[in-house]
């Protein structure tokens, strides 16, 4: 393809091709601090392309493709090319990765032990992970957490964090502006701005962490903690995994082990400060 870039996020080496220079330049900037090994063959291929040649210039719209394609997915305007790239990278990992059990969850680590947060879009799992990652936690990722089926360890996928709507201002107030991507206003997912993880989080992206606490956050209610049984955590995580079925017995073994060995809680919180306080409180118990 006309423009391309190679990016390694956690264990996944991406090859991203694009019909336009813009998305590749934006990725280059966001991922400049990530380790580069241009000789390493790619695990996943992403393509950002115009459906018709003239749509490269005339009302340019970015279609998402690569190793895996979702038929009928709507294209995005070129101004949202970075979001298209992010969605395409997620898609390839979600559908193609088989080395680990994939959880649609954010994670942070402290002392090589991981806090994993799973929830739907809007639950606040990305924002909590981003804010904790600015404190004394290592950000492991805001989208996927990888569980090693053999040993049970969690592995990081620290892509650039996708901050949405109110979370943008909240995080922007605390970090150096150089660590923020361009504001993508009015996307189908709302306003989006990417946060580049801290350099120490990127440097440690291959380091495993032992799962120590599972949280299912829900933003927008009074602060509360509810203990969760193994069965419920298991069912919720099968739904949060994109490759649980494909991994068969290995996926079942990895997930049962995770919910048996890791205490799980549902938490509700009215604002980020309260959410972080709950996390620290539960962590103090779990990590004892």
């Amino acid at each position: 393809m006309r423009h391309s870039v190679r990016i390694a996020v956690g264990p996944v080496q991406f090859r991203i091709g694009s019909d336009w220079a813009g998305p590749v330049a934006a990725l280059d900037r966001l991922y400049a601090g990530y380790p580069r090994d241009d000789a390493r063959p790619a695990d996943a291929t992403v393509r950002l392309f115009a459906a018709r040649p003239w749509r490269r210039w005339l009302r340019p719209s970015v279609h998402i493709g690569g190793d895996f394609i979702v038929p009928g997915a709507l294209p995005l305007p070129l101004s949202m090319g970075l979001l298209a790239a992010e969605m395409a990278m997620n898609l390839q990992v979600a559908l193609g990765w088989r080395r680990h059990l994939l959880l649609h969850a954010s994670a942070v680590a402290r002392d090589d032990r991981a806090l994993i947060m799973s929830g739907e879009s809007g639950s606040g799992k990305s924002t909590l992970a981003a804010l904790l990652g600015e404190g004394d936690w290592r950000l492991m990722g805001d989208e996927f957490t990888l569980i090693d089926p053999a040993g049970g360890d969690a592995f990081a996928f620290p892509r650039a964090v996708s901050l949405k709507n109110e979370a943008i201002a909240e995080v922007a107030a605390r970090v150096d502006a150089a660590r923020l991507g361009p504001l993508l206003a009015g996307t189908p997912k709302g306003d989006i701005r990417h946060l580049i993880p801290r350099a120490d989080a990127i440097a440690a992206m291959h380091a495993p962490a032992r799962p120590a606490l599972l949280l299912f956050p829900r933003f927008g209610r009074a602060a509360g903690i509810e203990s969760m049984g193994e069965g419920e955590a298991f069912v919720r995580l099968t739904e949060a995994s994109t490759n649980y079925v494909a991994l068969g017995e290995a996926g079942f073994a990895a997930l049962t082990r995770l919910v048996r060995e890791t205490p799980a809680f549902g938490i509700t919180y009215p604002d980020s400060a309260a959410g972080i306080a709950l996390v620290e409180e539960l962590w103090a118990e779990a990590a004892r």
Binding site: R40, P41, D43, W97, R98, R99, A246, L247, G248, A250
Partner: peptide
């Protein structure tokens, strides 16, 4: 094979075995 390719291929063989059983 290069290390990354060998690792990817091992993943693929394991995944195909599960898929065939299914």
């Amino acid at each position: 094979l290069p290390h990354a390719v060998a690792a990817l291929f091992a993943d693929q063989r394991a995944a195909a075995e599960v898929a065939q059983r299914q």
